[in-house]
Simulated assay, not measured.
Amino acid sequence: MASETASPTVNSPSSTPTQAPVEKPSTPPVNILPSPTARIYSLVHPALLLTLCTLRFEALVADPIRELLADLPWLAFLQITYVLICLPPAGTTPTEASFPAPTDGEDKKKTPPRSPSGPGVTLRPGKPGLRRKQLAGKHDFAGVWAKLMPAFLSLSLTFLLATPILAVLLVLFGAPLTTHNPETVLCAAHIALLCATALVYVHGVDGYVWKEVWGISRPADAVWGSALGTGLGAWFGAIPIPLDWDRPWQAFPITILVGAYIGYAVGSLLSRTPLLYGKRIQFTPVEDEEGEKKTN
């Protein structure tokens, strides 16, 4: 009897070794919307940003604060246009974003009510063509509003949250603390618009996704690639500032902004190639991670 009572104790859940908590699966990489307009503009958009940076470079060197303020609305407009045309809003798939699901009104329109007296007689004949146009207009408005609302929310969160955070990061990475404060804030606003607008638009406020963003562990796509490219470009752009070349364009934050714009364009395009799309940055070899799990 002792052996019979011991076996269920060994197999009981309390005595089994503790298993590692199941991690939440990562969200897949974001695809550009399948419409031809979205695919074409996703390639044109980086070129437009580089053109804006090139055309206004001399004015930026002459008066950085004034030029940064003047270019900020144009950059915001281009970024909002990009997310509206090319990206699915948070909580949707590319197919749903391109073709909104029919509402209850449309389902009822497809199956009109029948009268009890005859199967082929409708209760309210009216003007079916007019009703179809009205319902189509409602669907179009709902689809546009479903994309406009996340776009304006992403723009608001970019200015209210991302800009102060990036301004602090610029100071921590060597930007002047007691001087050039307007330049620091405006530079942070430009970088925030480049890297955070699309991230907020497609991912919302999903905490797990943002942990991946801050941990640099997102799978490569057009959105994450452009954000990572912006950060790396700004970091490399700071290299010429302390050099003793005595050039006017070395003043803070000109080279940082130019590097951010170039990094955005390069990251947005390269991350969509088969070589990088869906890949992650690995800081620890996979074999080492598997070995650590086995030992634990």
Rank of each mutant, 00 (worst) to 15 (best):
E4G: 15
A6L: 15
A6C: 13
S7I: 13
S7H: 14
P8E: 11
P8G: 08
P13D: 12
S15Y: 10
P17G: 05
Q19N: 12
Q19E: 13
V30M: 04
L33A: 01
A38F: 05
A38R: 01
P46M: 04
C53E: 09
T54G: 11
R56H: 08
A62F: 10
I65M: 02
R66E: 02
A76W: 01
F77R: 03
T81G: 07
Y82N: 11
G91M: 01
T93Q: 00
A101Q: 05
A101W: 04
T103M: 05
E106C: 07
D107V: 10
P113Q: 11
S115A: 08
L123K: 12
P125I: 06
P128S: 02
R131H: 12
L135V: 03
A136K: 13
H139K: 11
D140K: 11
D140T: 15
A142L: 14
W145F: 12
L148Y: 12
S154Y: 04
S156V: 06
F159P: 07
L160D: 11
L160T: 12
P164W: 01
V171Q: 08
F173A: 06
N181P: 07
A188P: 07
A192S: 02
L194F: 02
T197S: 11
L199F: 15
D206V: 02
W210T: 02
P219L: 04
W224E: 07
T230Y: 03
G233E: 03
G233F: 04
P248W: 04
I254Y: 13
I256A: 01
Y261M: 08
V266D: 02
V266Y: 00
S268Y: 02
S268A: 06
S268M: 03
P274N: 06
P274H: 05
L276R: 06
T284M: 07
V286M: 15
E287Y: 11
N296L: 06
